[in-house]
């Protein structure tokens, strides 16, 4: 039984339609901390013009954004802020880790720098480089759009895969004594108060 369609009607899967809408209206939240932030600015500025790829609506409020671009190194004092902002963003949301420092700690293998933000928040796309060129960031955004179109579902099922991932972390206890004063660290306190599986940041 064939149904005849009018000329201006197209048939698609709902999932694909939703993904198509999402991928073409990415609103980035620039979490720019260091040098990569300047290249992020260059990507948005005159010569490279991110607007050509439909992701130029930079919004600084996490509530309005669905793509977090972490540009630059994230240090101990900044990580709770990063996690809080990530939790404030609405689903569906994605994260680009821009540059070597955000991805792995880069040249800063020191006491203060978090060795890759993917230890503590989910990351969808890594951009190598120190800092990456604007073209690389644009390519990452195009790839992410591709990924959204390929895997996206209207219910966000594709994000469920991460449930299979184990939580890697523990409070690393190198010398036998916890080196951070746990009583004064709100993050650790919260962790201790709630069982691991239901820990939440505010």
């Amino acid at each position: 039984m064939a149904i005849e369609l009018p000329e201006n009607v197209m048939v698609s899967r709902l999932d694909e339609l939703a993904s198509w809408c999402r991928k073409n209206s990415l609103w980035p939240m620039p979490f720019a901390t260091a040098c990569c932030g300047i290249e992020l600015m260059a990507t948005g500025a005159a010569k490279h013009d991110l607007a050509r790829f439909g992701a130029e609506v930079f919004r600084f409020s996490p509530r309005q954004c669905d793509l977090m671009i972490v540009a630059g190194r994230v240090v101990m004092k900044m990580l709770p802020v990063l996690q809080r902002i990530w939790l404030q963003m609405h689903e569906p949301k994605w994260c680009i880790s821009m540059g070597a420092c955000a991805s792995t700690g880069g040249v800063f293998d020191t006491y203060a720098v978090v060795q890759g933000i993917d230890r503590f928040i989910p990351v969808d796309m890594y951009v190598p480089g120190c800092p990456p060129r604007p073209e690389q960031l644009i390519q990452a955004i195009i790839d992410l759009q591709d990924k959204i179109q390929r895997e996206g579902t209207i219910t966000g099922r594709e994000f469920d895969t991460s449930q299979r991932q184990l939580r890697k972390r523990a409070l690393v206890d190198v010398t036998g004594v916890l080196q951070v004063d746990a009583a004064r660290n709100p993050v650790i306190q919260r962790e201790l108060r709630f069982p691991r599986s239901e820990s939440r940041l505010p």
């Binding site: 260091a34 240090v75 020191t110």
Partner: peptide, 28 residues
């Protein structure tokens, strides 16, 4: 302190020529 990355500590571990890469990232 939200971007304190221990530049001066790295300076004690890299040679004079290597450390120039780190100074790049100082006033970027």
């Amino acid at each position: 302190g939200y971007l304190h990355s221990g530049f001066e500590k790295i300076g004690e571990h890299l040679t004079f020529n290597q450390y120039v890469t780190v100074t790049d990232r100082m006033n970027y």
